[in-house]
Amino acid sequence: MNNHEIDYKLYGDDMQFVEVELDPQETVIAEAGSLMMMDDKIKMETIFGDGSKQGSGLMGKLLGAGKRVLTGESLFMTTFTNEGTGKRHVSFASPYPGKIIPMDLSEINGKLICQKDAFLAAAKGVTVGIEFQRKIGTGFFGGEGFIMQKLEGDGMAFVHAGGTIHERVLEPGETLRVDTGCLVAMTGDVDYNIEFVGGVKTALFGGEGLFFATLRGPGRVWIQSLPFSRLASRVFAAAPERGGSKGEGSVAGGLFDLLGGDRR
């Protein structure tokens, strides 16, 4: 294997975190800000890119970091290395309610394509790059962007998503339409494109957006029931400053809203 072999354990149900077990000198890489806790004797270091090409010189490191900028991520990632003599543990948490999906890249032909904000952590040696979609319509209307993240290697990687996660195995030629925000990840052999919903009334008043992600097998896809963008928009719309109710669950709250009262 080119990647470090790491063991892990998932905790929780809807607010999960993953605990990674590191042998001496083993390293895991993670998105900046995802750390929850770590044992003593673990060295934390900030690096350019994913650290998979440390010997490629300054230009190679800058190129790897520049690819992350294109996906909207930070220039930097964080490595956690066990510098002790025994096993040590480091834990990473999801940034919002949902699930963490462990992916063994060696079992999916060494490549996973995912939303730009889905990556959480991975064994050192996993390359975190960008995936350009072949068709330009995906770039203009894809919702999650023309550029998606690409994880390559033969080790473990962890991605997170909102709500409930559903995995679908697509047979050759089988097609699945997915809301663009609900697509979490797919294997590299899935054909991905954007398709117009169709019908003026459906597009304008359907409330489901103008475009679908069209996935065509063979391959595996992972779908999330609650994209963070959907959750955030509902919270934003319900905020009192935006005209939302101040007392959603009470009769008194509704009465105060009707009369324009202030309950402070």
Rank of each mutant, 00 (worst) to 15 (best):
D7V: 07
K116R: 13
R88C: 12
N109L: 03
G207C: 01
M38C: 06
L62T: 15
L231V: 12
S94K: 05
E83M: 02
A93P: 09
F76G: 06
I100H: 07
K61F: 15
G153V: 04
P24V: 14
I6D: 07
F256P: 06
G66T: 14
L105A: 08
F140M: 15
G12H: 02
K124I: 00
G155F: 00
M1D: 04
H89Y: 12
V28H: 04
E107M: 13
F212A: 04
V28N: 10
E144R: 10
R216M: 15
V128E: 06
M38L: 08
Q133I: 14
E73C: 05
F228T: 10
S34I: 03
M1F: 05
M1P: 14
G206Y: 01
Q133R: 13
M36R: 11
T214Y: 08
M148H: 15
D23F: 03
A237M: 02
N109R: 08
G98L: 10
G162I: 04
N193V: 03
G254R: 10
F76E: 15
F17A: 07
F80S: 10
V200K: 00
L75V: 09
G243A: 07
N3Q: 04
I42R: 02
L75P: 03
I147D: 11
D189G: 09
A203I: 08
L120R: 09
G153E: 02
P240V: 02
M103Y: 03
G260A: 07
G209F: 10
G173H: 00
K43Y: 03
I130L: 13
G72E: 00
N193T: 15
A157R: 04
S56V: 14
Y96A: 12
G253M: 04
I29A: 08
D14E: 10
V90Y: 09
K124R: 15
F236M: 07
D14Q: 14
G260W: 10
D50L: 15
A121S: 10
P172E: 13
S94G: 09
L258F: 12
G249F: 12
K124A: 11
K9G: 14
G86I: 06
P227K: 07
I108Y: 03
F132M: 14
A93W: 02
G72L: 05
V184P: 02
G260T: 01
A238V: 03
G217S: 10
D104N: 10
F228V: 13
R263P: 15
I29R: 14
M148W: 15
L259T: 06
G145W: 10
G142T: 05
D257A: 14
F80E: 11
Y8D: 06
N193Q: 08
D104Y: 02
G137W: 09
M38Y: 06
G55A: 15
Q133L: 15
A237Y: 02
V126L: 08
L170A: 14
